[in-house]
Design a protein around this nucleic acid. Sequence first.
DNA 1: TATGAATGAGCTTTCATTCAT
DNA 2: CATGAATGAAAGCTCATTCAT
Lengths: 217, 217, 217, 217
Amino acid sequence: MTTQCKKVLAEPRSRDADRSQLAILASARDEFSRYGLAGARVDRIAENAKLNKRLIYYYFTSKDDLFLAVLEGTYADIREAEQKLHLKELAPAQAIRRLTEFTWEYYIEHPEFLTLLNSENLHQARHLMRSERIREMNSPLIQTLGEVLERGRKEGIFRGGIDPIQLYISIASLAYFYLSNNHTLSAVFGRNLMTAKAHSERLSHICDVILGYVLRD
Amino acid sequence: MTTQCKKVLAEPRSRDADRSQLAILASARDEFSRYGLAGARVDRIAENAKLNKRLIYYYFTSKDDLFLAVLEGTYADIREAEQKLHLKELAPAQAIRRLTEFTWEYYIEHPEFLTLLNSENLHQARHLMRSERIREMNSPLIQTLGEVLERGRKEGIFRGGIDPIQLYISIASLAYFYLSNNHTLSAVFGRNLMTAKAHSERLSHICDVILGYVLRD
Amino acid sequence: MTTQCKKVLAEPRSRDADRSQLAILASARDEFSRYGLAGARVDRIAENAKLNKRLIYYYFTSKDDLFLAVLEGTYADIREAEQKLHLKELAPAQAIRRLTEFTWEYYIEHPEFLTLLNSENLHQARHLMRSERIREMNSPLIQTLGEVLERGRKEGIFRGGIDPIQLYISIASLAYFYLSNNHTLSAVFGRNLMTAKAHSERLSHICDVILGYVLRD
Amino acid sequence: MTTQCKKVLAEPRSRDADRSQLAILASARDEFSRYGLAGARVDRIAENAKLNKRLIYYYFTSKDDLFLAVLEGTYADIREAEQKLHLKELAPAQAIRRLTEFTWEYYIEHPEFLTLLNSENLHQARHLMRSERIREMNSPLIQTLGEVLERGRKEGIFRGGIDPIQLYISIASLAYFYLSNNHTLSAVFGRNLMTAKAHSERLSHICDVILGYVLRD
DNA sequence: TATGAATGAGCTTTCATTCAT
DNA sequence: CATGAATGAAAGCTCATTCAT
């Protein structure tokens, strides 16, 4: 839960009201990420927030609206973290590596992000699509990434014609799939993918793949 | 629903029993892939299978067991399709491209596979882990892929030291994430990722990334 | 299961048919005595009899009719055992003691009898009341007991005016209640009533009570 | 439903909450005593309590827990009634007679007590055994009875060596069996045991048996 | 005689939500 | 701002019973 959350709260409110809403959002984020939208229990959210169930409806109208609020908060958090990357100040190859490592580490530190997104995709982005906040939170990252790629191309170290969106998706893919699917992959390959060693091997592999792609031969 | 399914059914049964079980499995696969495990409704599964709800419990004991049966069938299907690839008969670069394209196309043609796997991961592979069938269905693909990589390396066209599991996961990642998350990605980027053109661009990008990685500079 | 059971089977039948019916009755007696009428499961009766469920309906029409058949068999068994007492051949006090001990021991050896009777009483003897067999199985015990009491009175050792039915009920009461309610009594008194020592103490007490009543001061 | 019930309810609740719980308990006691645990229907309990079925689970968690609550209430009631006997203030023979009559009358006025106990015994006291309340409700009756017996012995009118628990069980037995099994006994003996005349004859017989036992010859 | 397949009705339980204060 | 009480709808599951062979 970061400062973002407070921004959507109506202005002249008591500390208690703020605290209640934040407690609900934190509890809901945990619950939705653990059990999915359908599997989440409003009772459990209230219990873990140590607040009355009725209050959830008072502040968030319905389970679906609460889910959207959680999603918005989750997106706000990653956007905020991205803004601290300062890719423009780095050398192109350095910037790509930085972004790749950031993505990997952020997903590891925020596993809720992955499961919440999976849930929202199961529901075909039904919630996000009606969210105004999400559109306002438009990530400047793609543009920055485009600039980095262009700089790299001009310096002669990156190949040309790279679509920043495709690249961004690929960077995310290589981390996301591994972490999100680690349970089934572990079961199928009979190998624990979540050890520290496995993690560092994976990150190393991902960097090889991404840099192998963007760097000129 | 493929021939695999029949193999596990006990032999001396009326044709109707087989047909009923297959109808339930098909309907359940659809339902679970649409709504997830918690969101799926046994009533709906029965209705769509045009069979009595009681029969589902008669054959599959519980919703969870049915979910596992669906997962097993889904895995059996992809394993069967993989076996038709004949990667060993192809030139190394050709084999990698073939596997990449196959993966992409299989995911497009079987969107249920993606959502079912997401659901199972949400549940931390709880079902797969108690499945004996899954362990018996061990994919020979990784070994084949290892042989292809070795051949490519000996021919001097592939870089050395590639872990076939890492590569396999990466190939899957690049297709899976894009397709599984297309709804949220579309919402966030404001761009429809599911057009034919977008698809072919993505596949092309994936091949570039993967081959850019395996091919020697 | 005793010879009684066979008497109700239609005459010209295969050994197999007999065996199936007896297996069902034995399994049903066990099931009903364990779980009561409502708690008993036809599935479990079939399974334990190692026979198809359909056969139960073939032979016994319904769960209720099967319950009645079990009750009738149970009564037939105790009647048969009573007939072996030969109370008339004993001295009066000896006969009363013999009957008391028999009752106690029979209940201990046939706990199903107690629970089946409790079940039937819960249902207000609904089944027994429509049974012709039960009325035909009228116990000659009461009459015998009357004769014993009369003999004892004439010999000057028994008090007069004892109603044999009241006495019979009392003898049964003192054993039945202790054994049937042993679980709750043990829980309430915090004392295990089912040890061999507790049993012999109870029997001794019951004999004291009954003989203390019938014997003249 | 007595004052006992209220004691266990948490204090700061609306009067309606109390009333609802008591209505559920009263309705459940009736239902369980009529049909047993397995035969009882939660729907019917709700309907007769004129309350929503959901509320039963809200307050009592499950059918089994509700059954236990009913048992506890039933025991609380009889304990409360016992405490009004004041056996210590009576002459020994008078006290024994008083207890015998009380037992008989209480069972007649509370037939639910008998069937509820039968049900609990069918389930091998599974519920009572996990009840803390029952253990706390330990009856002081046995001790009082022991004192009465000792007084009678000292006065030279009672025989010595009587175990108060055995005697208590016997007094209960003679009433319980007759009343609890009256339906099957009536069916078997072809004689209505529930007329006023039959009742007074039985009570008279029971007193004769019990006093015949305790009084010195 | 015997059985596997199938079912309708109804069971206990759950859940998101609203009422009343 | 906050909460305990209450509910309608529907969920997963069970059961005695029947069908078809």
